[in-house]
Structure formats: structure tokens, C-alpha cells
Amino acid sequence: MAATTLERPLGRRTARRAGPSWQRGHGRIALLFLAPALIGFAAFYLVPTARGLWFSFTDYNLLSDPKVVGLGNYGEVLGDRVFWNALKVTGVYVVFNVATQTVLALGLAVLMERLTRSVMIRAMVLLPWLVPNVTIALLWMWLLDANVGFVNHVMEQIGLSKQGFLFSPDQSILTIASINTWRHVGYTALLLFAGMQLIPKHLYEAGRIDGAGEGRMFRQITLPLLRPVLALVLVVSLIGSFQIFDTVAVTTEGGPVNASRVIYYYIYEKAFTQFEFGYASAMSVFLIVFLVALTLLQMRLLRASTSDLA
């Protein structure tokens, strides 16, 4: 394991002390500092998760007491074609959203890094990200409306045919993914841009002296050295992308048919409109297992905690 220069002196200092840290009197203070985070974590994540796990083994409609049904809910989930379809729809959304978002953000970050020094322009790419999700969803729903929307109006003016966008079964989920790409691309670009600041400038100078063009320097300097940041960005966007809910809830409500019924919306519907809390919890447990596995796999594949700089 390649330790970074930052970790080394810290490691030496602690090694000099004898005994575990809690005996030295720092433990309590450390605990005090950790308390706000720990309390929040316990109250808002740990306890609800444990309750959710318990509900997943019960038949619970919110209004009467839960009845234990063992693994019944899990069996039903496995046979529920809407659940599998929701996973598929979510998968399409995540792949399309993360792919377009990352590629566009990388392009934007390079432009910000190599072409402009203007803070104005750099700040401007963040604008869509500053608008609340629900507002963005409503805005695009009006813009894309087939009858009174601006986009279709322009398309008809230039001779293209009217499109259903959000309410067409073939375009629905891709439209939602594009809306969120539009919203998040600036933020992702900013993260990548920050990562690019860590790449030593002399590498580019050396590259230029050796006669490398912008394209080659991007492929052989920027991309490899950006990998740890890129990995983090991918993990964060992937998990964020999986959580797609608000845009669907505001615009399509899962329709038409099941074309945009993503997994979180389906879980929400089961829990809060059909009041099958046990069933919804079982789906959530499936999802958590799936996401942990996916995250670990991704971290491993991208070797996120090591840098090529060291």
C-alpha cells in the first residue's frame, strides 16, 4: 500500500505513544466531537434502517399493528414483475444519466481549466444546480408539454414533428435522465475541475515541450491523474442517480404504463399510497444489498484510494 506523504508523520506521532488512544484521555473528547454526527447518524439512519429491516418481515399497513410474515415479502418481491421492471428502468436511467453527465462534465471541466480564467463563466455552469429539483421538474414539464410547451412549438416551427417526451413510453425515462443531466452537469464539472487543480502544471509544460497536443495531453496526463477524483465522482453520481425520485414524482408519476416507474417511486407508492409498508421495506432491503455490492465493486475496479501521482 502506498501511503501518502500526509499520513506518514501522523503515523509516526501516534506510534510513539503507548497504549490504545481511549486510555490517554483523548477518547472522551473525541467522542464529544463525534457526538453530533453520531447522534444524527443513529437517529436518522441507523434506527430507521433497523426499523425498516424489521418491517420487511411483517405485513404492516401503518394503521394496524405489524403482523410477522417471515420471508413472505421477499418471496413476493422476487415474483413481482413491476419490481424487476422498475430495476430495469432505474438501470437505464442511471446508465444514461451518469454516462452523459460524466462525459459532458469532463468536457466542461477541461474547457474551464484550459480555456478560461473567468470566475463568472465557471460560476455560471453551476446555475441549474442551484434551482430546486421540483422547480426544475415543473419547468421542464411546461417546456416539453406537447400542446402549450415551448420546445414542441420550436420543433414544429422548424418542421419537426411533435414529440410526447415525458409522456411517451419510449422517451419518458430518457427525458427524465436528460433533465437531471442538465441540472447536475455543472456541479460534476466543478468537482472534476477541482480535481484537475491537483495535477502539477509542470507535467503539461513537459508535455508541450515534447510536442504533445491538447488531445494527447488530455488522454495521457489529465485522464490518468484524474482517476481517483473521477472514481469518487462516479461513485457519488451513481448513488445519487439511483435515488431518482422527485423528477418522476412531479412529472410522470411512473407512467405511461410503467415506463418511468423507477425503483424509489415504486417503493414510495407501495408504502405511502397503497400502505404496504412491509413490502416496501423488503424492496428497500433488496436495494441496499444491491447498492453496497455495486459500490464495492466500483471502488475496487477503479482503485479509488490510490493515486498514480505517488
Binding site: 430507521p48 429491516l53 401503518l62 436495494l287 459500490t295
Partner: peptide, 23 residues
Amino acid sequence: MKTPRRTLLATMLTLSTLTVTSC
């Protein structure tokens, strides 16, 4: 040492997915 810490991180990141809780 590396793997458990990463697992914890991954778990914490994904714990936020179990959001079915009545409010």
C-alpha cells in the same frame, strides 16, 4: 485495514437509501 473502512463508507453512503420511514 483498508477494506473494512471502505465498506463502512460504502454502507454509510448507501444507508441513506432505506428511506421508508413514517414522518
